[in-house]
């Protein structure tokens, strides 16, 4: 049952693959090869990771929800499928961010040896996982609210969340700055090392789980 729903969403996404590739390439080229190389893995990770949310838009455009509820999948399976898709795209985003940054970075270093940027694998793993955590956080908040209010309002909400997160991070950075430290990749890495990347991933899945429970509760009684 979930397989059929996944296929539907993947076919939907496939119809906009070209614009996606352009965005990813543009981002990676813009960021890789500058000092911000590690940030590119986060940005790519978030762009790819967020794709799954746009499947809600496709459903809304086709008014699919009403029809899907006449098919055998249960409401539970319908909700679960969105989380399977979300987690897959989060992981895919992490891998993409990591792989693409490494690939293009090495390629640029090869092409421009005089402008060499040192790429540390450890740091790259940390930033990629950080990106995945960000995706998990946004999705865990977004999915229940989309189930509740729909994709259109959800999109506005997403901007608010991202803005809020950005403010929060710069706030933390400002606070750290006051305390004599600065928000750079090294300190981020330090935080990750202290917490442990595994712990961060576990936290992501916990957020997904709680979010799923909330979404199911919302969708169980939802009338479309």
């Amino acid at each position: 049952m979930i397989k059929g729903l996944l296929k539907k969403d993947l076919y939907n996404l496939a119809s906009y693959k070209v614009s996606l590739i352009i965005v990813i390439l543009f981002c990676s080229l813009a960021m890789i090869g500058t000092d911000a190389i590690y940030w590119s893995s986060i940005v790519i990770g978030i762009i790819v990771g967020m794709i799954s949310l746009s499947t809600f838009n496709y459903d809304e455009i086709s008014k699919a929800n009403k029809y899907i509820l006449t098919l055998p999948p249960t409401r539970k399976e319908i909700v679960l499928e969105k989380y399977v898709l979300a987690i897959c795209s989060m992981i895919l985003g992490g891998l993409f961010g990591f792989g693409l940054t490494l690939l293009v970075g090495s390629l640029l270093n090869y092409l421009r040896p005089d402008d060499f940027v040192d790429i540390s694998l450890d740091t790259l793993v940390s930033t990629s996982v950080g990106g995945m955590f960000g995706v998990a956080l946004i999705q865990a908040i977004q999915i229940p609210s989309i189930f509740k209010w729909g994709a259109e309002k959800g999109r506005i909400q997403m901007f608010v969340i991202i803005l809020f997160l950005a403010l929060l991070i710069s706030g933390i950075g400002f606070a750290l700055d006051k305390m004599g430290s600065s928000l750079d990749i090294e300190s981020l890495e330090r935080i990750f090392n202290d917490f442990g990347l595994i712990l961060l991933l576990l936290l992501s899945f916990l957020m997904y789980f709680i979010s799923y429970k909330i979404s199911y509760k919302i969708y169980k009684a939802k009338e479309v």
Partner: peptide, 22 residues
Amino acid sequence: FDDSFLSDYLNCKHINKIMKDF
């Protein structure tokens, strides 16, 4: 339903593969 379907972004072959699973 007159106004609701699986998705408008599918072709008939896609629909076949999806419905097979249901």
